[in-house]
Nucleic acid binder design. Structure first.
Lengths: 233, 233
DNA sequence: TAAGATAATATGCATGCACATATTAACGTG
DNA sequence: CACGTTAATATGTGCATGCATATTATCTTA
């Protein structure tokens, strides 16, 4: 009856999904064991396991050893959003990308970042101010601090040809990071750079990345008015 | 030498991860076949497969049949963010949640939503305006349209005791949706509701969900000033 | 030589089995 | 009856194997 092949793990996942959607198995309710399901579908337990694991990953079911598998009470609304390199994002829109480096100097780490960005306080960090353009219209304004201990090569880069973002992605890969999104009002500087009225609400993103225990970079990106970050769930 | 057990799939994943981080395998470079790696680690190919599949899922390697596995050129910066139910988000902050229903009526679908929200144009939709509080301070302002064809029970709900969000999560589960984030300036209404100055930049989220082909609801959530959406990568 | 058929190969997936591990239920024992 | 011990059980994971499938390389043939 189903279009999907029933004894492939994806097929089984679809069937289970439908049962959850159609309330055959109520939220919070325990569903049959892997072994029973395997028998029902006439496949190996491994295959059922694969399907259930996938559902558990997306948060739809909760699995516990011995306790069994149950339908999640409130399926967490998870969204995976891809944060592209700005150049790629702009080019994907069919527009021409360029960027211009507004500032570049060594300076002590601003106190605001002392907590998150644990560098010995004497050390200078590389500070960059960049403006990103799409078809010669400002697209995003970037302020970035780079820990030279984590990315020593950065000191010799001008970051005029290749953006710091891209260079870092390729030369100082991170293991983890913190990401946050918020809204800011355009101050005088921002409004001039992004060619908008002062006070305009702007979408902003802040990111700190580490390689293990070592902080690599702190970026603050502020997008031109009208920017939307989209994703599907 | 490694702390992790080397012949568990997670252990193998760690080893592979380190090789990628340490540039033993350069970006774009092809890495050994599953079979070779299995021999190197002294485990079954299945186990290597599991580790590689996991790395592929997080976008660090690209796998193609016959073509082999190679390190991703620009590892997409993917972030999974969990969009919690507001009540849970507020309570997780250790604050008391409540909400108040400001408006509730049936009305034709506003033209703005005709494109996304395909309801026969004659049909009315349920419109709700809600203000969410944390410790009696405004937390977020919500405007919501509910397709009564997708969630007929909604017409009989007052949504005063239980929020529309929670009710829908439990009674009209969606199969997919569109999600977007942006910034808006507080207009007169918003500034009064959210107790802030007019013009303040506010973080906003818009979401449309469907069950199959049928649209369920359109929500626009505007958060009080200072809100940050955080996640880890 | 160019285009199409064919073989080789790396990953994808299913199976059956065994053992590990977390968690709950049952069981004693004081 | 309370509390700690033990057994039962469902999921987690590893292994060996075989076949499926996509893609590339090679070999034909006109």
């Amino acid at each position: 009856m189903t279009l999907t092949d029933t004894n492939s793990w994806t097929g089984i996942r679809e069937v289970l999904l439908r049962r959850i959607h159609d309330r055959v198995w109520q939220p919070g309710e325990q569903i049959p064991h892997e072994a029973d399901l395997a028998q029902e579908f006439g496949c190996a337990r491994t295959t059922v396991n694969r399907a259930l694991r996938d559902l558990a990953e997306s948060g739809l079911v909760i699995r516990k050893r011995r306790a069994g598998t149950r339908v999640a009470l409130n399926p967490p609304q998870r969204a995976t959003l891809t944060i592209p390199i700005i150049r790629e994002e702009v080019e994907a829109l069919g527009r021409t990308y360029r960027h211009s480096l507004l500032e570049r100097d060594l300076r002590p780490l601003p106190p605001m970042l002392h907590g998150a960005f644990q560098v010995s306080l004497g050390e200078d960090v590389l500070f960059l101010k960049t403006l990103h353009f799409a078809d010669d219209r400002p697209y995003a304004f970037e302020e970035r601090y780079i820990n030279l201990k984590a990315a020593p090569g950065a000191q010799d880069m001008s970051f005029e040809a290749v953006s710091a973002n891209e260079w870092l992605v390729h030369n100082a890969p991170y293991s983890h990071g913190d990401l946050s999104f918020f809204a800011v009002n355009a101050d005088k500087t921002l409004s001039r750079k992004l060619d908008t009225a002062s006070g305009t609400a702007l979408f902003a993103m802040e990111r700190i990345t580490w390689s293990g225990e070592v902080p690599i970079t702190h970026v603050r990106l502020i997008f031109a008015p009208g920017y939307r970050m989209r994703t599907e769930i």
